[in-house]
């Protein structure tokens, strides 16, 4: 129990929640136009891979970050093109992209490093940590909030920015109107296809940030299938938050707490297989709670 009062624990909660913050934003931006991006997982993985590889070739983590984001955005463009132009089913397209990145990253990893498991043989570059002035001197809070990876702060700022974008700006309102009632949106001159295209691409960009954090901040290498479900967990967390990025971020924190608890429990000799299950079990529980609340609010017009 004392672990929960330890600033170290809360520091690691924020650390493990960072990729989920980005994931939640990616899920939110795609789902508000009604085109839920199942490929977030694969986009993250792609970005994690190209981030490390290009980062170490260019000897600069920021170049790596950019490459990672470009790669995940390309994936998003592919998904958007196939779904919106060629009418591929959105879910199947997303699943295909996840498979694609899982295969392509291992294939390229082996071609580049001669190793199929991880990129540990490459000297990789990490996005630097940042100490927040003033804040870092406050006793408990300083230890929790200061000294994080720069991407963590970008994530937290993005949550607020995207929340504002979605709720208050004309663009956000247009995007939401496409999701809620495409016919009404068309009637006031909004291009549904354009808005959906934009929302998938924005989703890809933020998934890219999340993936890059995994391989250039969370750890300093790429490992095969290292996203291990974080893209899907993000989708579940976003479902909790509805159309609010802030609530979605709280959902992400919940998963972060589960993951950090798992790491803490491992030090108590509880087998890692058991603790590794925690976030996935929590996702299912969250899914049930979300689905139940939704059913209750729709019970009057329940069909089938």
């Amino acid at each position: 129990m004392s672990d929960f009062l330890n600033p170290q624990f809360w520091y690691s909660v924020i650390r493990v929640s960072t990729p989920l913050f980005f994931g939640v934003i990616a899920a939110l931006l795609s789902s508000i136009t009604g085109t839920i991006n199942i490929g977030i997982e694969g986009m993250m993985l792609m970005s994690a891979f190209w981030g490390t590889i290009v980062g170490s070739l260019a000897q600069n983590p920021w170049v790596g970050l950019l490459a990672g984001i470009v790669s995940s955005t390309i994936m998003a463009v592919i998904l958007a093109y196939f779904h919106l132009k060629l009418k591929t089913d959105l879910v199947i397209g997303g699943v295909a992209l996840n498979l694609l990145s899982s295969g392509l990253t291992v294939f390229m990893l082996y071609a580049i490093t001669g190793d199929k498991g991880s990129s540990a043989s490459l000297k990789s570059f990490i996005i630097p940590r940042v100490d927040l002035p003033l804040l870092k001197d406050i006793p408990f809070i300083g230890k929790v909030l200061s000294g994080h990876n720069a991407l963590t702060y970008i994530a937290i700022v993005s949550v607020f920015l995207i929340n504002y974008l979605v709720k208050k700006t004309p663009l956000g309102i247009r995007m939401r109107s496409v999701g809620q009632n495409p016919d009404a949106a068309v009637s006031v001159g909004i291009s549904v296809t354009k808005m959906k295209f934009l929302s998938l691409i924005l989703s890809g960009i933020f998934a890219g940030f999340g993936g890059a954090f995994l391989s250039m901040g969370y750890v300093s290498w790429f490992a095969r299938d290292m996203t291990s479900g974080r893209g899907f967990i993000s989708i579940a967390a976003q479902a909790l938050g509805g159309s609010s990025a802030l609530f979605g971020a709280f959902g992400a924190l919940l998963f972060g707490i589960a993951e950090a608890t798992g790491i803490t429990l491992q030090s108590l000799r509880i087998p890692s297989e058991i603790t590794n299950m925690l976030p996935f079990i929590l996702t299912i529980v969250v899914l049930i709670i979300y689905a139940r609340s939704r059913i209750r609010s729709h019970s009057r017009i329940q069909e089938q």
Binding site: A96, L99, L100, S102, G103, L104, F107, Y110, A111
Partner: peptide, 11 residues
Amino acid sequence: IAPEIVVVLQS
């Protein structure tokens, strides 16, 4: 050559 290339072809 890593056989994972076939996963790419599949997707």
